[in-house]
Design a protein around this nucleic acid. Structure first.
Lengths: 206, 206, 206, 206
DNA sequence: AATGAATGAGCGTTCATTCAT
DNA sequence: CATGAATGAACGCTCATTCAT
């Protein structure tokens, strides 16, 4: 890759990052391209050179953020590949880490923006859900299925189990963080993830 | 109350209803006051006479919708006052009805608008959450507490139980309805509510 | 007609007049709506309230000007209804008056704008030609036909005669005024119209 | 001339030709330099290297086109040097050929562009008129003068005769082609040129 | 000399809001 | 009180022009 094209790609990513920041700060309609350009340190037409218009800019910024969130979530779920001796402890650890990812600024902004712009960008919902909620639910279902096979969880539909464990984590957090508006104290995060694992194991432990 | 002032109140409510409809259709920034005025059948300055500006209009429209959603939810939870013989059946009925309310157009629009406008109207989150999620969680906790006392549920923190039951209902629905974008088939709604009750009773049955 | 609606119509006409002035001064693309608004003494959005966009503004301004030019031309041709004793003198008078109309600022701007915007407004050509060139050619043909019947002109196709008389007037003027750019001295105008009538009568006198 | 500078000149001419094409297609203001560069197969800054800015580009493109149109017209008029036996036939032939040149795409675009941009490029009018209308009028006047001397046309001011013959040709064509917008059928072109010669000879035959 | 990338300036259009009736 | 009309402020987008390579 040449130095020039490398610079071009860097600039494109800088613009996408700036766009996500500004969209997150203001919302789609309230964000103005000028502010995005300033945040990225380029002139307004440069934004248009790289990403043809505001809608495109939004779509790509969301898509890039969704990829990052997906990666962070999958990395956490992978930890269940080595469940160790103490299954409850491992689940609590994973649950807690999922909660942390789910509560971080980027995840919350992504959900908020996607959700708030369903009317204008209906197709983004599928894209974002596929890369975040769906993907992590599937990965988790895979792990739970293996745990069932290994006799450490009751047998049954691992998709439902996965869905419910995630619901027990994210549901209370949405409420307690006021839809991602307020920081959730560490202790509360721990309480929620532990309670979720507790209820989950009541229902699904072998 | 005089006939005249009665008419004034009617017009105000017509405007608020129209505002909610249009905001739900377009989103806050994309909705224009002209369209709201047309939907309400009045002239634009009339809107300004009744509700000083667009922000105010939004706040009051959201508030009114939140009141309606709250009432619908509480009515459902009240059914747990008479749990009857078959607790599982009663919970399944209540759970299913909550799912229905939660999936209806108005609830979804309310969540979407509030969520999408956190940046501009941060205070609305508290107002809406207090009247919807919090209120129903409390009412449900009240009912669960009574059921514990009556020996029909294990004793423990009824708030956590309430929170988890609601999470088991709304979490999966958010995913399956693609954040309220897609209709959820009746069968799926039933499956979700039954699975929620099942897991809930695994953890909380006496 | 109410005073209010009268005022509205006045304002619309003021905007159209200002638009024609500015378009004539700058050309279509170079004219900016802001300048038109200033020329009309209103704010920019007022222009958009009355005439939905720039293209519409242009079309209506051109149409109005075409109407005025048409009326002026027809009034001149009408003079041939009373040819009087001295046909040559009457024709010279009419010819000279047509030349005057054809050379005035408004006619020239109208032709220039229409001509210059064929690519963008192809339908305007027909509209303008119908109301100016065609209409005056027909009216003139009518008069010439009567003169033939009255035995004062040779018989023949009056349309061709009309077309040629007008060509003998406008052709030399286009050249001498540098496509309407330069004032044509009164003496030259007279020379052109007299020469045209002379040639015309050589070919068409009874 | 070196091969290199020869290539440079070729590129310059390619740019001028592309510019005329694009200006003719879109009009001056609507044409963008990017499109001209693409039409010429070069990059945008190359256009600026060869012709300093858009105005210059326009001027030179127009000038080049005017030269070509002039040459085509003069070639036709030269045919009157050998009038042959049948003067009417020769005049009809020349008239018809002039009509053809006058109706071709390039001539029409040239007139349209020049005419439409009088406001911005007032000096172009003189340049173009001098090379087209004036030049052909003069050349034609020269031929007519010789024909007068030879006793084949009445004596008199050959400039006026030339001007009127050209007016009788171009005037009706402007109308019938809707200012160059519509194709004029071959039969109509013939009718116009024959009628022009007929009237011309009525007035000017010896 | 030629180009990909960047930019400053400007324009059409919209919209929340306010007058005047 | 209700309304038709008017406006100031923004914003998305384009384009001629210039750097840097």
């Amino acid at each position: 890759m040449t130095v020039a094209s490398r610079g071009r790609i860097d600039k494109r990513q800088a613009i996408l990052a700036a766009a996500f920041t500004v969209f997150a700060r203001r919302g789609y309609a309230e964000a103005c391209v000028k502010e995005i350009a300033e945040e990225a340190g380029v002139a307004k037409p440069t934004v248009y050179n790289h990403l043809s218009d505001k809608e495109n800019l939004f779509r790509h910024a969301i898509e890039a953020a969704a990829d990052e969130v997906m990666a962070a979530n999958l990395e956490v779920v992978e930890r269940l590949r080595e469940p160790g001796e103490d299954l409850r402890a491992t689940l609590e650890d994973v649950a807690h880490r999922l909660v942390e990812v789910c509560c971080d600024e980027r995840s919350r902004s992504l959900r908020r923006l996607t959700y708030g712009q369903v009317a204008r960008f209906p197709e983004l919902i599928d894209l974002v859900q596929a890369r975040t909620a769906d993907k992590v639910a599937e990965a988790l279902a895979d792990r739970l299925a293996r745990l069932s096979l290994a006799g450490r969880l009751r047998s049954g539909d691992p998709s439902v189990a996965s869905e419910q464990l995630l619901a027990l984590l994210t549901g209370p957090l949405e409420t307690r963080s006021r839809l991602g508006t307020r920081e959730v104290p560490a202790a509360e995060m721990r309480a929620v993830s532990d309670a979720a694992v507790d209820t989950f194991l009541s229902a699904y432990a072998a």
